[in-house]
């Protein structure tokens, strides 16, 4: 087609213009070209690695030589079901569930306030106040709690000042979750897990709550519901997709963490540590791989359930 009018210059017939013509004539060519590099990377490098991992969980380790036997077997998975290993899995899942539940309870008021009552500059400040801890260094955050929970640290000092020391000692003397001090007990570990993942819970709940139109709350009040009834029958159900979305993070992150349990908590292993120790010092890659499949499976089930709750609309 010729250009519109003779006295305007005609665009140069560059190679890119010809190529652009081809993109227009062939539907899907552009899409393909855009998708190929990320798919190559994620599909081959990442999924390839995951599959390699999965495959190794079907190998076994020779008990005498300690070398890997590259033959298909379910022996490693059977080993996973031994009481000691099952114990690790169970302990980790319980911890993840407890952390998720506590995070949701603690996150809700912050998210609710940010979504419903904060606006303008206040809202921006709230957003930053939640984003900053979310993005700040994981290790520094863990380190902060090592400082705080140390015997000579700030928590003990403050508890001593207000006379709460007996209460903490009472908590620590509880069976199973207790321990000699906060920094080597499940209580301390639980506390720090909540601290680490709380922002991941607040943001999706806030996003979900913001999608609840104010008119809905007014309608409920107009129909005679008390504020508490409105909260329980309107706000809470509508916030559930946000809670589900947030719980994906809190659950998944707790399942896989192996750094925090090394630094704070008792010496018994959580799942992440077990994987780390098995693949590293123990050199038992097949069992480490089988262990690693557990959180994948747990998360797959979890994601399916969360999808039903509408979690993916809340991101």
């Amino acid at each position: 087609m010729t250009a519109g009018v003779l006295d305007l210059p005609i665009p140069r017939e560059s190679l890119s213009r010809r190529f652009s013509d081809a993109l227009f004539r062939r539907q899907g060519l552009l899409l393909t070209l855009l998708l190929v590099p990320p798919l190559l990377w994620l599909g081959i490098v990442y999924v390839g690695s995951l599959i390699a991992l999965l495959l190794q969980s079907f190998f076994s380790i020779d008990e005498f030589s300690g070398t890997i036997v590259r033959e298909f077997t379910l022996k490693t998975y059977a080993e996973l079901l031994q009481p000691a290993n099952l114990d690790v899995i169970l302990r980790t899942v319980v911890m993840a569930a407890a952390v998720t539940l506590a995070s949701a309870i603690l996150a809700f008021p912050v998210a609710y306030y940010a979504a419903r009552y904060a606006y303008g500059r206040m809202k921006a400040a709230f957003y930053l106040a939640i984003m900053m801890p979310l993005w700040s260094s994981y290790l520094v955050k863990v380190y902060a709690w090592k400082l705080l929970l140390a015997k000579e640290g700030a928590v003990a000092w403050a508890a001593d000042r207000i006379g709460a020391m007996p209460m903490i000692d009472g908590l620590l003397s509880a069976p199973l979750i207790g321990g000699p001090s906060l920094s080597v007990s499940y209580i301390g570990q639980f506390l720090v897990f909540i601290y680490l993942w709380l922002p991941f819970m607040i943001l999706p709940i806030q996003a979900a709550l913001e999608r609840v139109p104010g008119s809905l709350v007014e309608a409920s009040a107009d129909l005679g519901a008390s504020p508490n009834q409105t909260f329980c029958t309107v706000v809470l159900p509508l916030a559930m997709p946000g809670v589900a979305a947030g719980s994906i993070f809190t659950f998944s992150l707790t399942l896989g963490d192996y750094i925090l349990p090394q630094i704070i908590g008792p010496s018994t292993l959580l799942l992440g540590q077990a994987v780390y120790v098995l693949q590293g010092t123990a050199g038992n890659i097949p069992l480490a791989a089988a262990f690693a499949v557990v959180p994948i499976m747990v998360m797959a089930v979890y994601l399916l359930a969360a999808k039903r709750l509408g979690a993916f609309d809340a991101f």
Binding site: S49, Y258, V275, Y276, Q279, A288, A292, P295
Partner: peptide, 9 residues
């Protein structure tokens, strides 16, 4: 997925 999965994979 937990970071440890990505790492070990």
């Amino acid at each position: 997925l937990p970071g440890i999965i990505t790492g070990i994979a």
